[in-house]
Computed example of a mutant assay.
Amino acid sequence: MEKALFDKYGGFSTVSKIVLSLYDRLLEDDDVGPFFDDVDMPRLIDHQTKFVSSLMGGPASFTDDHIERAHSHMDIDHLHFDKLKAIVSETLADFDVAEDDIKTVLSAFEDRRSLLVEKPNVN
């Protein structure tokens, strides 16, 4: 049986370092950084560590409904989502995550694009 990416790369310890590095990059980005103004960053980083862990086959899990509700008030477009994926890819590569494993994680992000970008109109 093949190890989950979560275990292969060191579990929560490594994932938390990846997420911290990811948010350092996201906050510096002119396109996506403004989404994090006035955000409780420690809380967000905790949630994102669990989310990324779940994408890598770890024990945490997030429902699509939870993800959609958390982003429903944001005006996220395809440019923002593509920028996020690029930054995730760069960050994972800096932590020596194998190319195929990066593609697996990016695919899991891509599977959730419609939850963030193509939100239904709310009246």
Score class of each variant (00 low, 15 high):
residue 34 P to M: 02
residue 33 G to L: 12
residue 44 L to R: 05
residue 67 I to L: 08
residue 79 L to T: 15
residue 15 V to K: 02
residue 7 D to C: 03
residue 20 L to Y: 10
residue 6 F to E: 07
residue 85 K to G: 05
residue 39 V to P: 02
residue 95 F to V: 06
residue 90 E to I: 09
residue 77 D to K: 14
residue 59 P to G: 09
residue 100 D to E: 14
residue 27 L to W: 04
residue 60 A to C: 08
residue 64 D to M: 01
residue 23 Y to R: 01
residue 63 T to L: 03
residue 49 T to H: 04
residue 68 E to C: 06
residue 33 G to K: 09
residue 2 E to D: 15
residue 87 I to S: 13
residue 58 G to L: 13
residue 42 P to N: 07
residue 65 D to L: 07
residue 10 G to W: 07
residue 46 D to H: 12
residue 16 S to R: 05
residue 72 S to G: 05
residue 30 D to H: 10
residue 15 V to T: 09
residue 64 D to K: 03
residue 28 E to Y: 06
residue 98 A to H: 12
residue 19 V to N: 02
residue 89 S to F: 00
residue 64 D to P: 00
residue 101 D to R: 10
residue 80 H to F: 03
residue 48 Q to S: 00
residue 59 P to H: 00
residue 100 D to H: 12
residue 70 A to T: 03
residue 4 A to C: 13
residue 94 D to K: 07
residue 56 M to P: 11
residue 1 M to Q: 06
residue 42 P to Q: 07
residue 39 V to C: 01
residue 6 F to H: 11
residue 25 R to Q: 11
residue 95 F to T: 05
residue 87 I to Y: 11
residue 72 S to N: 15
residue 15 V to H: 07
residue 23 Y to T: 05
residue 1 M to W: 10
residue 98 A to Q: 14
residue 47 H to V: 01
residue 34 P to E: 06
residue 41 M to K: 13
residue 87 I to R: 13
residue 86 A to G: 07
residue 54 S to K: 14
residue 18 I to S: 00
residue 52 V to Q: 01
residue 51 F to Y: 10
residue 6 F to T: 06
residue 5 L to W: 04
residue 29 D to Q: 04
residue 9 Y to E: 00
residue 72 S to L: 15
residue 51 F to W: 07
residue 28 E to K: 12
residue 48 Q to Y: 06
residue 40 D to M: 06
residue 86 A to C: 03
residue 13 S to M: 14
residue 45 I to M: 09
residue 28 E to S: 14
residue 103 K to H: 11
residue 104 T to I: 12
residue 25 R to D: 10
residue 76 I to M: 13
residue 70 A to H: 04
residue 78 H to L: 14
residue 30 D to N: 11
residue 65 D to F: 00
residue 100 D to C: 09
residue 84 L to Q: 08
residue 91 T to Q: 01
residue 60 A to W: 03
residue 38 D to H: 11
residue 6 F to S: 04
residue 54 S to A: 15
residue 77 D to Q: 13
